[in-house]
């Protein structure tokens, strides 16, 4: 187990290297005039060249990346070219915001899709058809459109939730919950497709003979489901949840924009557009690390729930 975790963490570190190198390559290959972006349209060529030299932007791309990597390995992610804010500080204020939205969304998605999927698999009939239909309808709705509809109904008309903004949990738990409800809902509704995975894997397990054996002995539906079926239906579900997490992390860029949430998505988006290399690399690396860790946690959870997939 320990070896497995170490192996996964090591490959995660390798992934961070690869992704950050690719990102750096893409920024530099894009030919963006970063120094010009910093100084604006009116600066002269001399001023631009001077600023580029100050920031080391006149050196080869690989050298710039190597410098960044060297510093990053010692825990120094540098400062934003534009605001001079330490990248770690920017991340420490932004990442918890995105994570609190995305993780809540994943949790709610997991609970709802598990409930709906099991219900559809067990009841079949109209419940099943409804869940399947809803899945198709929901799957066809783009995140941002859904977000806009939710805002206009629940924030602007009914005034139940704030239309924009984010309240930190420590400042006000209730305010936090209100501020993330609509963003989470827009992510969750898009992620409910996982219910179909639960449905089909529960149906598959319900067809197995060991379930018949249990039924023949008079075990209730609930006992059969909770004690015997769920664990076997869990692996594909957890895999879908880890994909949902990554998808929602990506979707957060759009959601953060619609709800004006100060998360890592808008940070990355803005930094990339400006060519704020240290910030982009910092965000990308930390995001990849988070994804690696979450996937690892889900794999461990998977093994814990279901020894069938447990690593040797």
């Amino acid at each position: 187990m320990v070896a497995f975790i170490c192996r996964r963490l090591l490959s995660g570190v390798a992934l961070v290297f690869v992704v950050s190198a690719l990102t750096a390559f893409l920024i530099f290959a894009g030919g963006m005039d970063i120094a010009r972006n910093i100084l604006g349209t009116n600066a002269t060529e001399e001023q631009v060249a001077q600023r580029a030299a100050e920031l080391g932007l006149d050196r080869p791309a690989w050298q710039q990346y190597a410098d960044w990597l060297g510093a990053a390995l010692t825990g120094d992610l540098g400062r934003s070219y534009f605001s001079s804010e330490p990248v770690l500080q920017a991340l420490s204020t932004r990442l918890p915001v995105t994570l609190s939205v995305v993780l809540t969304a994943v949790l709610v998605t997991a609970v709802l899709s598990a409930a709906l999927g099991v219900l559809a698999a067990v009841r079949r009939g109209w419940v099943d058809r409804f869940v399947q239909l809803a899945n198709v309808v929901v799957g066809a709705i783009p995140n941002f459109w859904l977000a806009l509809v939710l805002v206009s109904v629940f924030a602007l008309n009914l005034r139940l939730f704030p239309a924009t903004g984010y309240v930190p949990f420590l400042e006000s738990p209730a305010g936090w919950l209100l501020s993330i409800t609509l963003p989470v809902a827009s992510l969750v509704i898009g992620g409910l497709g996982a219910a179909m995975i639960v449905r089909s894997s529960v149906i598959d397990v319900l067809r197995l003979d060991f379930v018949r054996t249990l039924r023949s002995r008079g075990l209730s539906q609930r006992e059969v489901l909770t004690k015997h079926v769920m664990r076997n239906a869990a692996p594909p579900f957890l895999t879908v949840m880890s994909l949902a997490f990554i998808g929602m992390f990506g979707g957060a860029v759009v959601i953060e924009k619609v709800f004006a949430i100060p998360g890592v998505g808008t940070l990355a988006n803005n930094a990339a557009q400006r060519g704020d290399v240290p910030l982009v690399l910092g965000v990308v690396s930390v995001t990849v690390a988070v994804v690696v860790v979450v996937n690892l946690v889900i794999d461990i959870l998977n093994g814990w729930l279901n020894p069938k997939v447990r690593v040797q």
């Binding site: 197995l208 003979d209 060991f210 054996t213 023949s216 015997h228 076997n232 729930l305 279901n306 069938k308």
Partner: peptide
């Protein structure tokens, strides 16, 4: 009691 045909599905793999 019962014994089913398929030994691969008659036992809870978990």
């Amino acid at each position: 009691q019962v014994v089913f045909q398929d030994p691969y599905t008659s036992l809870n793999p978990a």
